[in-house]
């Protein structure tokens, strides 16, 4: 590589290597050690003990399961709802299209922490939602502990937040996918007597398919990182019902409040989470996301 080109990427490369290589090496070394700062003076090498702990830790397996459950609720709903909204919001009969789209940007521009706090107020037992339900004659619900009598349903409350924040993103992306289908193709089809619905079904949506796939995969990978709203809304509770893998790592490695609190164990869990995210990226997203074509094509 020419020296001038190297000079262009060197500052960024140094910074990124420092921020990624150092943590990676640290994690790989730490996952064979045991260290709980509340008890131990220094980390000690324990070989594969953390792996054994992981294999026998139902909380960790539960955390992985609940992380994927949250994903399987949020991604299909957000994508489905987003496509539906994109279809009606790209209608040529809609007045004020530009304004309505700017307004729909609001949920995704708000920091997730604020979204979490906003909905925490709304779902509060003596809060506005329950007051509203009572005023129309419905029973109030303990949304953040056990809505409809089953604490497990708190997962759905968390899902609502993520869906609320990110459906507009899907909507706007799919809308631009739909609009990138040349209008003369659509017009030609409707002149041939195709109804609006069949133009949509057989021409517009198939042509926007790749866009929809990429958006769904981006949402999928992002949903493995959901943290802020759990922190604000439930803090992993009640009990450990909403403790997803990222939140479990936080409890095991940072607050040291989990039963298995240990920085070495948290390192192993982190490596597992990273491996899952990277596998997903390589196996799904990179197949559609042709870097060669996007950059130099």
């Amino acid at each position: 590589m020419r020296r001038g080109v190297l000079a262009l990427i060197l500052p960024a490369l140094t910074l990124l290597l420092l921020l990624t290589i150092y943590p990676t090496i640290y994690l790989y070394m730490m996952m064979f050690q045991s260290f709980n700062p509340l008890i131990d003076f220094a980390p000690k090498f324990t070989g594969l003990d953390n792996f054994v702990t992981f294999a026998n830790d139902p909380e960790a397996w539960y955390a992985i399961g609940i992380m994927f459950l949250l994903t399987t609720i949020t991604v299909p709903v957000a994508v489905g709802l987003g496509i539906l909204l994109a279809i009606i919001f790209t209608s040529r009969y809609l007045q004020g299209k530009i304004l309505i789209r700017s307004l729909m940007l609001i949920p995704m521009s708000i920091p997730a922490v604020i979204v979490g706090l906003n909905w925490k107020m709304i779902f509060f037992t003596y809060g506005p939602l329950n007051a509203f339900l009572q005023s129309i004659g419905l029973p109030p619900q303990p949304w953040l502990s056990a809505p409809l009598g089953d604490p497990f349903k708190v997962i759905f409350v968390l899902a609502i937040l993520d869906i609320w924040q990110w459906t507009p993103f899907v909507m706007l992306a799919v809308a631009s996918g739909i609009e990138s289908v040349p209008s003369d193709i659509r017009e030609a089809a409707s002149l041939d007597g195709a109804s609006g619905w069949s133009v949509l079904r057989h021409i517009t949506l198939p042509m926007a398919k790749t866009v929809i796939m990429v958006i769904a995969l981006l949402r999928l990978i992002d949903s493995l990182r959901i943290f802020d709203i759990i922190y604000m809304l439930t803090f992993g509770g009640p009990g450990n019902i909403t403790t997803t893998l990222p939140f479990y790592i936080y409890k095991v490695g940072f607050t040291l409040t989990a039963a298995k609190a240990n920085i070495g164990y948290a390192a192993l869990l982190s490596v597992i989470l990273l491996a899952m995210a990277i596998t997903l990226v390589l196996m799904t997203l990179m197949r559609l996301f042709k870097v060669e074509r996007i950059i130099w094509g």
């Binding site: 990676t24 990978i221 948290a266 990273l274 995210a277 990277i278 990226v281």
Partner: peptide
């Protein structure tokens, strides 16, 4: 590109 996908919680202790 893949850095965009990393769950930050996983590498924060080393940081």
């Amino acid at each position: 590109l893949s850095l965009r996908m990393i769950p930050a919680v996983a590498i924060l202790y080393p940081l």
